[in-house]
Measured scan of single mutants.
Amino acid sequence: AQASVVANQLIPINTRLTLVMMRSEVVTPVGIPAEDIPALVSMQVNRAVPLGTTLMPDMVKGYA
């Protein structure tokens, strides 16, 4: 199954992502693919992302 990017902590709005904030997990619905984690580093989220939330393309500025 495809692993997705999941928030490893609460990520406040406009925060630049770092590796420690993200983990890969097989979840439904599928979000951003886990292999994109390196590309997500330093991108900003456009909303607060609670712990355990799957990151979707529309949550990350410049990803989609």
Rank of each mutant, 00 (worst) to 15 (best):
A1W: 08
A1H: 06
A3F: 14
A3Q: 08
A3R: 06
A3P: 11
S4L: 02
S4I: 01
S4G: 04
V5Q: 01
V5F: 02
V6Q: 03
V6G: 00
A7V: 08
N8R: 08
N8T: 08
N8W: 06
N8M: 06
N8I: 06
L10F: 14
L10P: 15
I11T: 02
P12L: 13
P12Q: 14
P12V: 06
I13Y: 14
N14F: 13
N14P: 00
N14T: 06
N14A: 14
N14V: 03
N14L: 11
T15R: 06
T15Q: 09
T15D: 05
T15C: 04
L17P: 02
L17C: 02
L17D: 01
T18Q: 09
T18K: 06
T18D: 05
L19Y: 11
L19Q: 05
V20E: 06
V20K: 11
M21V: 03
M21K: 03
M21C: 03
M21N: 06
M21W: 02
M21G: 03
M21L: 06
M22P: 00
M22T: 01
R23F: 04
R23V: 04
R23D: 04
S24M: 07
E25N: 13
E25I: 04
E25S: 06
E25R: 07
V26Q: 07
V26H: 11
V26E: 12
V26I: 12
V26F: 11
V26K: 05
V27G: 03
V27L: 05
V27S: 06
V27C: 04
T28Q: 11
T28A: 13
T28E: 13
P29Y: 03
P29C: 05
V30F: 14
V30I: 12
V30R: 04
G31A: 03
G31D: 00
I32V: 10
I32K: 00
I32C: 03
I32L: 05
I32P: 01
P33H: 09
P33S: 09
P33F: 15
P33L: 12
A34S: 14
A34I: 07
A34E: 10
E35D: 12
E35L: 10
E35Y: 11
D36Y: 12
D36V: 12
I37S: 05
I37F: 03
P38S: 12
A39N: 15
A39I: 15
A39Q: 12
L40G: 00
V41L: 11
V41K: 05
S42P: 01
S42C: 08
S42D: 08
S42T: 14
S42Y: 12
S42A: 10
M43F: 11
M43G: 04
M43V: 05
M43P: 00
M43Q: 07
Q44V: 07
Q44K: 09
V45W: 00
V45N: 03
V45A: 06
N46H: 10
R47Y: 14
A48K: 10
A48S: 14
A48P: 08
A48V: 14
V49N: 01
V49L: 10
V49C: 05
P50E: 11
L51A: 14
G52Q: 03
G52E: 05
G52W: 05
G52N: 13
T53R: 08
T53I: 15
T53H: 15
T53L: 10
T54D: 00
T54S: 04
T54R: 04
L55F: 09
M56W: 06
M56P: 02
M56H: 09
M56G: 04
P57F: 06
P57L: 04
P57Q: 09
D58W: 14
M59Q: 04
V60Q: 01
V60D: 00
V60C: 03
V60L: 08
V60H: 00
V60G: 00
K61F: 11
K61L: 13
G62M: 10
Y63W: 15
Y63V: 03
Y63C: 03
A64F: 04
A64R: 10
